[in-house]
Design a protein around this nucleic acid. Sequence first.
DNA 1: ATGTGCATGTAACTGGTTACATGATTCG
DNA 2: CGAATCATGTAACCAGTTACATGCACAT
Lengths: 187, 187
Amino acid sequence: MSVRYFILGFLSQKPMSGYDIKRFLARFNWLIGSPSFGSLYPVLHALLKDGLVTVEAIPPEGKRPRKIYSITEAGRAVLREWLDQLAVSDASLKAFLMSLFLAGTFSPAGLITHLQHRRTQVIDRHAALEQSAGAPDEEMDLGQCLARGYGLAIAAAELAWLDSTLDWLPQQSLPMEVVQGDGALLR
Amino acid sequence: MSVRYFILGFLSQKPMSGYDIKRFLARFNWLIGSPSFGSLYPVLHALLKDGLVTVEAIPPEGKRPRKIYSITEAGRAVLREWLDQLAVSDASLKAFLMSLFLAGTFSPAGLITHLQHRRTQVIDRHAALEQSAGAPDEEMDLGQCLARGYGLAIAAAELAWLDSTLDWLPQQSLPMEVVQGDGALLR
DNA sequence: ATGTGCATGTAACTGGTTACATGATTCG
DNA sequence: CGAATCATGTAACCAGTTACATGCACAT
């Protein structure tokens, strides 16, 4: 049920309609895929029933009203919980990109920790893939060879991006809120 | 039903057991995920029922027999059909990596065409993502900014890999069993 | 002898898709 | 005026996961 938390995350940024969320995600369709309306709207209804979001039908100047959803405090708590568990798990590319979208809900320090954690994961995977050629008993055909090279390239690119972002980020987050004293990851 | 064709593709390389396929795919778990046994074995049974594969219980030196599956001619035809349709569709990263695994089932010329087609797709997506900053009416928060940069980095890396592979591939005279061992192959 | 890895399998569940239905609005 | 886009929704269906069950082999 990852769509649930993903929606929750978008709504934590600003109130949106279901259609807005879909349209926004379409841009990253190739990387992570975007949920269909057939899953989006029911999830929205479920979130509403659970009290994690609220609706408001806003008629924009004589137009047909759009249903704008807003996250509640309970919703924020649930989202925070999910992010915490995501940070420690060995996340897929999809899950990580999701967490990136929600960067705004992290504290500055928490975000940096999150990226650093991801960095060690990527390094591990890159090393594992590189080693996979060393197994001499197992022959690699063209397909395995290409797939391995592709994976290595993606991992290397993500590592480079993480490094440059981790370098750039501290300068950006200075004007933001001060880190919480108790070491909590999230704002 | 992508697992079906994926399995078919692996079996087109060489006969394997279900366990073999799972173990092999685990390496790329972070990129594309690997199917669980709960889906793997039933699919294998279905393929068998449809006559796309055959089984042979091979007892390795007094050990308990393993079920080795082999692809049939009908299976090869189905796989080819799937690959054809995949090549023209706007494939996700996952589907593309799948097709890479099956590079051996392409003709040399067909593989190059496939990669070139992918290349234009990646260029388009990169351009689309880059443009998404230009929209002045829509403000980008930190999360959208990071996600966009991440997507751009991945796309750029894939493009670079495609270029170098397309450059390297034609020199590889004859198809199938290529090199084993050293990782400098795809550099 | 007991635990861990190999190896195969099944049943229940569910998250998500496909396909369909509706209506209002905007554009050529 | 008709087509396309915006916008929301429902129901059937299915792929794939989780959880469980089985049994052999091998090491500690």
